[in-house]
Amino acid sequence: MAVLPRFLTDPQIGRHLLRDEGEVIVDEVGKHWVVYVVPVLIAAAGLVFLIGSAVWSITWAWFPMLLGLGLLTWAGWKALSANLDRFVITNMRVFRVHGVLARSLATMPLGRILDITVVKPMTGRILGYGHFTFESAAQDQGLRDIRFVGRPDERDLSIQRVVQRSGLRGPKVN
């Protein structure tokens, strides 16, 4: 039996696909493992407070116990939120699904992608993650910044490959 129901732990990407139009997933990108470091540290602090509450007097033990439970809950929420944040590349578009209780879906057709900027900070170059910035003709869009993408160079090449195969950039010149 699962601790959390499946609808809380699975972003259910398949229900957003246009299967009758022939849309298939090229790549589904979850967050890089580095986003889980802070929730793990917060959870460890929560455990320290929970265990530490045993050495306090019975009249004051409730305070570190509540603090520890609060930190564990917050860390679990942050980790679950990172787990449900998915960036998906299909043969027709790119989209992002995120949110725990309320889900958000931001979509951009491949034809509207004008420019992709890949930023790899120094820690990202060492640990293998980067951030994407999508530019399109629209000023405000829901799919602009995708942060903590693992293997960003490979993901950028797969997007460029899908755009090229779809014929949106014109034929290759020899």
Score class of each variant (00 low, 15 high):
L105S: 13
M92R: 11
L168N: 05
A75R: 00
R19V: 13
L127S: 07
K31A: 15
L50W: 08
G70F: 13
D140Q: 04
R169Y: 12
Y36K: 10
E154F: 03
G150W: 01
I42H: 00
F148N: 05
K120T: 11
L114E: 15
G52K: 10
A106C: 04
L71D: 00
L105Q: 12
D20S: 14
V55M: 13
A82Y: 10
F148L: 02
P11K: 04
G22Y: 07
E135T: 02
V3K: 03
R125M: 06
W56Y: 11
L110M: 09
S104C: 02
G14A: 11
E154V: 04
D85H: 09
H131A: 02
K120L: 04
M92Q: 15
H32A: 07
F148Y: 10
G128R: 05
K120D: 08
D145K: 07
P121S: 05
F49R: 01
F87P: 01
Q164N: 13
I146M: 03
A106R: 02
T133M: 11
S104P: 00
P121A: 11
V162K: 01
R96P: 10
A82V: 06
A61L: 13
A43R: 00
V35C: 02
G124E: 14
L18R: 07
H131S: 09
I51T: 08
W62P: 02
R155T: 08
L66H: 10
R19W: 10
D153R: 13
T123M: 13
G142A: 09
A82R: 02
G68A: 07
V88F: 01
L50G: 06
G70K: 07
R165I: 06
M122Q: 11
L110G: 01
D156G: 15
D85C: 04
V24A: 09
A138I: 07
T123L: 15
V24M: 12
G46N: 00
W33R: 15
S158I: 03
T73K: 03
T59P: 14
L41A: 07
W56C: 04
R103A: 14
G167Q: 11
G111W: 03
N83Q: 12
G130M: 07
V55L: 09
M92C: 13
I51Q: 08
T133R: 15
D145L: 01
S104K: 11
L157H: 14
S166N: 08
S166E: 11
L69S: 12
V88E: 01
V100P: 03
F132V: 05
W74N: 06
I113A: 06
H16L: 04
I113L: 11
L8T: 06
N83W: 12
S104N: 13
A137L: 02
L50T: 08
F49C: 00
Y36A: 03
V163S: 09
S53V: 03
T9M: 09
V35A: 00
P5T: 11
I25Y: 14
E154A: 05
R96W: 09
